[in-house]
Amino acid sequence: MIAIIDYDTGNLRSVCNALERIGAEYCVTDNIDIIKSADKVLLPGVGEASSAMNELQKRGLCDVIKNLTSPVLGICIGMQLMCRHSEEGNVDCLGIFDTDVRRFVPDASKGVKVPHMGWNEIRNLQTPLFDGIEEGAFVYFVHSFAPDICDDTIALSCNGREFTAALSKGNFYATQFHPEKSGDIGEQILKNFIAL
């Protein structure tokens, strides 16, 4: 069973739909015991970092997530919350990954837009999360902030500056892009996570 953490940060529906399409069993929950005993845990979410951190704290989930030993996948804001600190709302996050989250700077002359929205390439792909995914594959991003590159970076992308598109450390994984909206490639990445 995959536990999708429900912490009131917008639309979890698309993640559920993607798991339906690939035939995975899941539940949406903020129950600590269910999260601790799940085979896999997903931390999705859209929204603003400091209020999302606040929602995790309110539910007593911060230490629970940090101490999980089963594979965990953070998506988009979920990934950012697993980093040390976010510039969005100037908030300290879970600190699972040794990197900080910074805003993109728009630059009309170079075509750099904020939010970074649409399909972009991912490169330097590492770990089983990207098994069967080619270098330069396109995935779907929607975000204005992104983690800096660090030792835990397992995929890179570029929007004005190079940034971390995916992270992994031990049993923790995270993607800045939305695998649940990234067509067949995204579904393959979710399948790879489930197969871990």
Partner: peptide, 8 residues
């Protein structure tokens, strides 16, 4: 649509 389409 949301259940069946895997792009935004």
């Amino acid at each position: 649509i949301a259940l069946n389409i895997n792009i935004p």
